[in-house]
Amino acid sequence: MEFLLDIINNPYYEQVLTMMGIYLIAALGLNLITGYTGQFSFGHAAFMSIGAYSSALMTLKMHTPFLVNLLAGGLIAAFCGILLAFPSMRLTGDYLGITTLGFGEIVRVLFINMEITGGAIGLAGIPKETDFVTVFVLVILSVWGLYRIVNSRFGRALAAIREDEIAAETMGVNALMYKVESFSIGCFLAGISGGLYAHSLQYINPSDFGFAKSFELLNFVVIGGLGSIPGTVLGTAVLSLAPEFLRFVKEYRMLIYGALMVAMMVFRPNGILGGVNLGDLFRRLKRRTKPPAAASGGA
């Protein structure tokens, strides 16, 4: 707690951690889509941008309360997610990925061309409403919600689709519906994340949300470990803080970042926590820290 307070009192750390939390919310949404349901999405940042623009415009033009705008941004992103998912969820794997990527680019170009969004210049003067505490609470809520989802009949259906879609269908799972639902829930989280982003940086423009950002989110999820909630938290933390830690290498920063991505994949293709059951791990650790009598077995 003391430590947390210290961090909040240091504006630089606070900003870094706030951004990390914001990305984490979007990444958790992507983890539901890709990690749990097994569907590729290479355009997740576009849904962030939809949430960001919607909520920022509501704040600027309608002066409705921040939390209402945030929620509306999430819902609009979820709705767009449904619109995209219905036709495209028939596609699988890379085809779905490339379609979502294309959708993301189209959204970006649309925002560049729309007047109300300020075109390529973007929207400025968004009031600062996002603070660390709000983000922290929303992260906790998202993690909690995701845990409940994956440990339910609904979540099992998603996992079944990921494991074997044909078998899932013959077990009675309406795969298309579930994929659309999972996709739109993921997009909802992206929209919330986008709203927080807009009201934190106070300025957004379409190039903030290109496919580079989408792939960054995908990196968080894959490097953390697909289908692992702690993995996504860790992946987002490591990768979004890495550029900060790598500041000392100055211009070589992104060079190292790129090489690191390759190395991480080559050495841990399933991500840092992929295939690791944290519950088991803790139990094993506990056993190991107990008196030697219990220290039998182990690898």
């Binding site: 890709t34 890379d94 792939f215 995908l218 894959v222 697909l226 690191l260 991505m261 994949m265 399933n270």
Partner: peptide, 12 residues
């Protein structure tokens, strides 16, 4: 490995 691993590696 999983389909996404080489993809991430490619982006790296």
């Amino acid at each position: 490995s999983t389909r996404l691993a080489p993809l991430i590696s490619a982006i790296g």
